[in-house]
Amino acid sequence: MAHDDLDAELEHRRAGEGEHRLPPAVAVLVAIVTYALLPQPLLVGPRLAIPAVEVLLLLSLVLVNPVRLVRRTRWSRWVSVGLACVVILSNLVALGMLVATLSDSSADPGGLLLGGMQVWLTGVVGYALLYWELDRGGPVARHRERRDRLPPADWRFSQDEDHDTVAEVAVSSSRTSGWVPLFVDYLYVSVTNSSAFSPTDTMPLSTRAKLLMASQATAALLVSLLIVARAVGSLGG
């Protein structure tokens, strides 16, 4: 794209006020509550220890951008990435505990099935947060920077290549409308990757994106297999 076109497209994006804080904040709260309600056998340490850390990290981010994501500092970006990593890593530990608990014949089957679904949901949120923060420099950069100054994209959305299709589709393409992905777009990517165990309409481009999606799909597949195995075992018993 020519510089004049890039500048015009950037001004179009800047006409908004930046991405709203509410969707990712709600997603984090869902992950916090879901983890706090996990069955005791899937927890390491006090029940509220990890949720408390996540709440403190979230509050620090809200102080920087209470309503709209318009400010970016190095520490806030690291805190945002760190929050997503805490959600993901604590959830993977819970998955490991779930695997270990399945061998315990005295464990509550219903509780383990519910715990498996909670682990799946928390994984969806955690990876969505990380995808959202990593891609193209993060939410603030995607809204404020010219495209030729953004870091290379980690994911290619369908809007990124729809500019030469029929008019009613091309009108919402990245090149035509200045569209950039929001949190809900990364949440959709995370849901479909955890459901289909592979990319659907959004393709990973970078090595880190491929590795992250592979780890998420593997964890989600393992959770699904464990839930099915436990359900079959319960029926057989």
Rank of each mutant, 00 (worst) to 15 (best):
G233I: 02
N65R: 07
V70S: 15
L43F: 03
S103Q: 13
S90G: 14
L226G: 10
E11K: 15
I88M: 15
D201Q: 07
T218H: 01
S172D: 14
T218G: 14
R175P: 00
W78M: 06
L212K: 05
L57D: 00
V64L: 08
A170Y: 10
R68G: 09
V228G: 02
L150P: 08
A36W: 08
I227W: 04
V87Q: 13
T207N: 11
P51R: 06
A49K: 03
V62E: 00
L37H: 01
L211K: 06
P139T: 02
T34E: 04
D154R: 02
Y127F: 15
L102I: 00
A209Q: 01
L130K: 05
E168P: 02
D104K: 04
L22W: 12
I88A: 12
T73N: 13
L102T: 09
L134C: 13
M117H: 10
T122E: 02
S190H: 08
L89F: 14
T202F: 09
A170M: 02
G123Y: 04
D162K: 12
L92H: 12
N193C: 10
H143E: 06
I32E: 03
T165E: 08
P181M: 09
Y35L: 09
G82M: 11
P152S: 14
H143L: 01
V67H: 13
E168L: 13
P199K: 09
L6T: 01
L205T: 06
L114T: 11
T34A: 12
W179R: 09
L225C: 12
I50W: 13
A231R: 05
P51W: 03
L42C: 12
P152I: 02
R14H: 09
Q216M: 04
E161N: 01
R230L: 15
S76Y: 02
D4I: 10
R68N: 10
L212S: 05
W120I: 07
P23N: 05
W155Y: 15
V79N: 12
G116F: 05
